[in-house]
């Protein structure tokens, strides 16, 4: 405990990086994932195929593999992003597939009559989706999206494999210096809990606030 408190500044800096990784990636993943979900339910077959391909390839590859391939692979191609930017891109892409599947299940849960009523008013497919279906779909998937968010907080630790100095990397480096893995990683674990537990609570609050009466 002493060890952790003595290095509180390092842990806090690591937490800040973890929070930044998570918030940036989740925002991007929400946008990409929603677009991909829209592709997967669209009446245009090539869009459906593209959406399915994206989900099935990115979701089924381990995050560590994606992280390393993107960071080192793109460097080889002469395109260089910082480790932090690379981590945000990879986490966004990876998380977008889970967002897409969650949002798609939300879309499918909206009663068929809602889309029919919207179409019969003369709304186009994108308008039906944006004005009528997605607002209802999101409300029903707040809880599972919350799980995706919490998974992302923890998944962001994979950024440490390309040396982004997040919470996990802070602990790893501290362990290399002190050789006290249990104390060091207990500290990291508690720091993650400080992020994940309130997130879970906030998701619950949000879920109750946006619920629609039926």
């Amino acid at each position: 405990m002493r060890l952790v408190l003595d290095n509180a500044d390092l842990y806090l800096a690591g937490m800040a990086t973890t929070v930044a990784l998570t918030l940036l990636s989740f925002s991007a993943a929400l946008v990409i994932g929603t677009v991909v979900a829209a592709f997967r339910v669209s009446p245009v077959p090539p869009l459906r195929t593209a959406g399915t391909l994206w989900v099935e390839t990115v979701r089924n590859t381990p995050l560590t593999v994606l992280m390393v391939l993107f960071f080192f692979g793109f460097t080889k191609l002469g395109i260089q992003y910082s480790a932090f930017t690379s981590a945000v891109i990879v986490l966004s892409a990876y998380t977008s597939t889970f967002v897409a599947e969650t949002v798609r299940s939300g879309i499918n849960s909206v009663a068929k009559g809602q889309a029919e009523a919207a179409r019969s008013l003369g709304l186009t497919f994108p308008q039906v989706l944006v004005r009528v279906i997605l607002p209802q779909a999101f409300r029903t998937v707040v809880a599972p999206l919350g799980s995706v968010f919490i998974a992302l907080i923890k998944n962001s630790s994979i950024a440490s494999v390309i040396s982004v100095v997040d919470l996990t990397e802070v602990a790893d480096r501290l362990n290399n210096d002190t050789a006290r893995p249990v104390a060091v990683f207990l500290g990291a674990g508690m720091a993650y809990l400080l992020l994940t537990l309130p997130s879970g609570f906030l998701v619950g609050v949000l879920e109750r606030r946006v619920a629609i009466k039926r």
């Binding site: 009559g113 009523a117 919207a118 179409r119 003369g122 186009t124 209802q136 629609i212 009466k213 039926r214």
Partner: peptide, 23 residues
Amino acid sequence: GKALAKLRSDVGMVFQSFNLFAH
């Protein structure tokens, strides 16, 4: 497509189950 959407806007429809937008 768009042409169908335009035509539908001229045809009002009332459903058995109302289908009012719940949100």
